[in-house]
């Protein structure tokens, strides 16, 4: 599904990513974790072809980036909790545009089914720019998943959601991933959510992978009883 080897990226004097290897198998759910500034987002954007690595190779769904980017992206879904939706478009219009971007045959029907999956059909005719941050995040999840991607990349997907809405988002995602055997790569600061959804976690610190394994094994590796404790330890080390 995804094989990235030896990724490096430097921005001026900062080595943002320093030799990261990431693999995600078919149907596997993996979390990419780390404190702010650890290199998660840069890694994610390299994996999606939005940033060119200085070194390293990325093979996504059998296509080598950057040249196979467009073909690979047909089967990749992306959603980020922090990204707004386009101005002056209704929710259903945003989704129809993106359904066409992803080559969906019946854009209108697919978009409405996506809204239904996440329980937000009532938002279809609302202006996208007037949604609350939680509603916007759910619509972004519909946008990222309605074409039934083989590989789903989520950056902070539930960061702005109330617990009940976050639970609805998780259910929608889990239904989709179970039905389609979708692979997942997710970043999140919610360790409980990560432990619930993901079977493998990758911790990044100062641009390098410092742990890669099952959540319980990673916690044991650091002598901690939870991912939360591992996260806090790595974050404090990064601050020093």
């Amino acid at each position: 599904m995804l094989v990235a080897r030896g990724l490096r990226k430097r921005f001026r004097k900062t080595q943002a990513v320093d030799g990261v290897d990431i693999t995600v198998e078919v149907g596997e759910r993996v979390a990419l974790l780390g404190a702010n500034g650890a290199g998660k987002t840069t890694t994610l954007l390299m994996l999606l072809g939005a940033i060119t690595p200085d070194e390293g190779t990325i093979d996504l769904l059998g296509y080598r980036l950057p040249h196979g980017r467009s073909k690979a992206m047909r089967s990749v879904g992306f959603s980020a909790g922090y990204l707004p939706l386009p101005d002056r478009l209704r929710v259903i219009e945003v989704l129809r545009v993106f359904a066409d971007f992803y080559g969906v045959a019946d854009a209108e029907r697919t978009a409405r089914a996506g809204l239904e999956r996440f329980g937000i059909s009532h938002l279809a005719n609302d202006m996208a720019s007037e949604l609350s941050s939680g509603q916007r995040t759910l619509v972004a999840l519909v946008k990222g998943t309605m074409h039934s991607p083989q590989f789903l990349v989520l950056d902070e997907p539930t960061a702005s959601l109330d617990p009940d809405v976050a639970a609805r988002a998780r259910r929608g995602l889990e239904d989709l991933m179970s039905a389609d055997n979708t692979s997942l790569l997710v970043t999140s600061h919610n360790m409980t959510e990560v432990e619930r959804i993901c079977e493998r976690v990758i911790f990044i610190s100062r641009g390098t992978v410092v742990a890669d394994g099952r959540p319980a094994d990673v916690a044991t590796q650091f002598g901690r009883d939870s991912l939360e404790a591992v996260f806090l330890q790595l974050a404090s080390e990064e601050d020093r």
Binding site: L48, A50, S70, V76, F78, L83, P84, P86, F101, Y102
Partner: peptide, 18 residues
């Protein structure tokens, strides 16, 4: 520039649109 004003550029860049 509409894509930059509405911060939609990343969504477009990671889609299959060339």
């Amino acid at each position: 520039m509409e894509e930059t004003w509405s911060r939609n550029l990343l969504n477009v860049m990671v889609s299959p649109v060339t």
